[in-house]
Amino acid sequence: MSLEKEQKINHLLNAQPSGVVYLSSWLTENGFSTQLLNRYKNSNWIYSIGTGAWMRVGDSPTYQGALFALQRQADLNIHLGGKTALSLLGKAHYLELATKQITLFGGSNERLPAWFLKYDWGVTVNYFSSSFLPPKMGLRSLEQGAFNLLVSTPARALMECLYLTPQKQELVECYEIMEGLNNLRPKQVQELLMACTSIKVKRLFLYMAEKAGHDWFKYIDFENIDLGKGKRSLVKDGVYISKYRTTVPKALENYE
């Protein structure tokens, strides 16, 4: 391989953090043709972990490095959310000693690529695409090893948990998480509630915040939050909360 090509591949390998996945689409945009990538592969510089995804030789792929690529190279809004974000931020009610599964959220038109879905990351990946919240609202950067990844802030993460209730997330656990969120910023919560399109999420969030007795709750402006019309029932034989026109489990209403 010529000196010029070696310099080009060295620039490629040093352009991103160690352990990152390189997307073929991003490499093409930066001047690396499929033919050139195959030459690098044959020269033992890089190797493929699936169609459209490459690693530098000597690096082992992790879901963090793959997610970093989706966020920074593909400019996708896919991020760590729900209970995973809460756990990373120290806000989960039950902290796992070892991560066995992760929750990712993305926009309604965003999908995880086939190579991401097929690769064994050592954890179960739960992915949910939805537009019930604006894609870039309520996110923050969090250092994860060599990578800074976008994760949901506590308020958004809890709303994502509530979005999954009652089929994929226990309501009582959501309330236990809410109890610990006593230092949320009212302005940020207000913005998320005003932008949220899920009536269920907004009603449950406000119900739980009021039940928890958080000081920041009194600064929320209900008049600018659309709570919809009609009644909502999450469970059979539950307790009807007239203020929020929602039927919740008895275990939740009676939780102290």
Rank of each mutant, 00 (worst) to 15 (best):
T34H: 12
L206N: 04
R156N: 06
K200E: 12
W54Y: 15
N42L: 14
K187N: 07
S43E: 15
R39P: 13
A195E: 14
L171V: 13
Y40S: 15
K243Y: 00
L70C: 04
E6N: 14
Y255I: 03
G145A: 11
L27N: 12
Q71V: 07
F222S: 14
K100M: 09
W26N: 15
G82M: 12
K200W: 04
P113C: 01
N77D: 08
E96L: 08
R203M: 01
L97R: 15
G180I: 00
K8T: 12
S242L: 08
L88E: 13
S2F: 13
N254V: 15
S233N: 09
Y94D: 00
C174H: 10
E110T: 05
A53W: 02
L97Y: 13
L171H: 05
Y240D: 01
Y47Q: 08
K200N: 08
K8P: 05
L193S: 02
T99W: 01
M208T: 11
G145V: 09
E191A: 05
I225D: 02
V125D: 04
L192W: 03
F128K: 15
K168S: 14
L36I: 07
R203K: 02
N148R: 14
F205T: 12
S130M: 04
G107K: 00
N30C: 13
Q101I: 02
N126R: 14
S131P: 04
Q73I: 15
G145Y: 08
Y40K: 09
N77M: 03
L67E: 06
Q167D: 07
Q71L: 10
S108E: 09
G122K: 04
K100E: 09
K218F: 12
S130D: 05
P154W: 06
S141Y: 15
F116H: 07
N126P: 01
G90Q: 10
T246R: 06
N183R: 05
S152G: 09
S108G: 08
S33G: 10
Y163N: 09
E160N: 00
E29I: 12
A92Q: 13
L88N: 00
A212H: 03
S87D: 11
F68D: 02
L3Y: 12
S24D: 02
A74E: 15
D75L: 08
G106Q: 00
Y94H: 03
A53P: 03
Y163E: 13
L23P: 01
A53H: 04
E179C: 07
G107H: 00
M159W: 06
L234W: 00
N126Q: 15
K202N: 00
K211Q: 05
L27C: 10
P166F: 05
Y240W: 09
C161H: 01
F217A: 07
D120I: 15
Q64G: 03
E143V: 14
E223W: 08
H93V: 12
A66E: 09
P154V: 04
T34F: 07
L204W: 02
K83T: 02
Q73A: 13
T246N: 10
L158I: 09
S60M: 08
S131W: 04
L76H: 10
L184E: 11
Y255F: 10
D215L: 08
G106W: 06
T124N: 09
W216Q: 02
K136I: 15
G90Y: 10
L133H: 12
Q190K: 11
Y219D: 07
W26G: 11
P17L: 03
G31Q: 01
N42W: 14
